[in-house]
Design a protein around this nucleic acid. Structure first.
Lengths: 175, 175
DNA sequence: TCGCCATGCTTGAACTTTCAAATATCACCG
DNA sequence: CGGTGATATTTGAAAGTTCAAGCATGGCGA
């Protein structure tokens, strides 16, 4: 028994204004910060934000190598995007591919020495900027909370889902 | 008098492991959440995450209209990107352009009725998903802290800058 | 061991974003 | 007024991303 006149629209629930402010703040931050950092990366080393992260993750792997799809997961990128990206990194000499001997379906992506050197060349400036615009602006407690937030939301998103809703509007609410 | 042997590299400072974990968490969240929401938006209404946000911001403006560059700023997008995007929204009938009568250099972007209707049609499902994967997972206190974090970092990034550093590496640190 | 399906990755084409240059309007100075 | 430079936006081409197929390998039952 829904309260509305039309058929069966689950009477949409909206964000309170505090919730909306928090959400909008996150969206703006998520859109702005990577762009700011990327702008420096681009100047210093012709790397996009995600390319930097890919090289960084690669450099931390045991043999500086990892499976294509794991790399994609680490970088929150789709497989196809990662594949194209690795092709470009290969052309620049920063990475190479090798089929996994254990299972020929897998592709290993390997960070070359040139890739490592290139990464190492930008890392200090990048780290300095992350400290400058992000870390140093926040208190240790805020950083802890942020980490907890990320963990919880990512767990919700990546772990098993629950539901999804849907309905018709009546007013102008948008998020 | 720097401590290093080479010329004048400012002895890079790195993130502690807690700081790095917080930063990585944010990066992952910023890469993942919009993608998850976009996937639903795409199915429901063929809108990208940023297009949804553009329509939402437009719908909140006084006459449902706003200057191109202000819209770009609200959506954290570059001007050129916004211009192309508005062109596509125009083709779909969701927005239109009009030169500002006060100053012919300005372009006003206007949300059409069709655009408004389209937005209103997806908003409930989108809001439901934001509540489901983000808001409801967090405590009010975490949301408050997150908002404070966004405000501080955005202020740092958008307000006047201070410096920027740069140097050579010695070990493998990346962020 | 052959056939068939599932899995993992790649590929090409369509679409979007970025970058640099072009255009347009305005402000201001002679 | 007419020229000059600054501001706001648009445009086209290059670069990157997404989408839908395509290819290759491996696992498994007959």
């Amino acid at each position: 028994m829904s309260a509305s006149g039309e058929s069966d629209a689950p009477e949409p629930r909206w964000l309170t204004s505090d919730q909306l402010a928090a959400w909008r703040g996150f969206v703006k931050l998520a859109g702005t910060l990577p762009a700011v950092l990327e702008s420096q990366l681009q100047q210093d080393s012709k790397l996009s934000f995600i390319e930097y992260n890919v090289l960084a993750h690669l450099s931390e792997q045991p043999e500086r190598r990892i499976r294509m799809s794991e790399l994609a997961a680490l970088a929150s990128a789709e497989l196809s995007r990662m594949s194209h990206m690795v092709t470009r990194l290969e052309k620049r000499g920063f990475a190479r591919r090798e089929p996994d001997p254990r299972n020929g379906r897998y592709t290993q992506v390997i960070l070359t020495d040139a890739g490592y050197t290139h990464l190492a060349g930008t890392a200090p400036r990048h780290a300095a900027q992350v400290l400058d615009v992000f870390i140093d602006v926040l208190t240790p407690d805020e950083l802890r909370t942020l980490r907890r937030i990320s963990d919880k939301v990512l767990a919700r998103v990546e772990g098993g889902q629950r539901q999804a809703e849907g309905a018709q509007p009546a007013a102008v609410r948008t998020a």
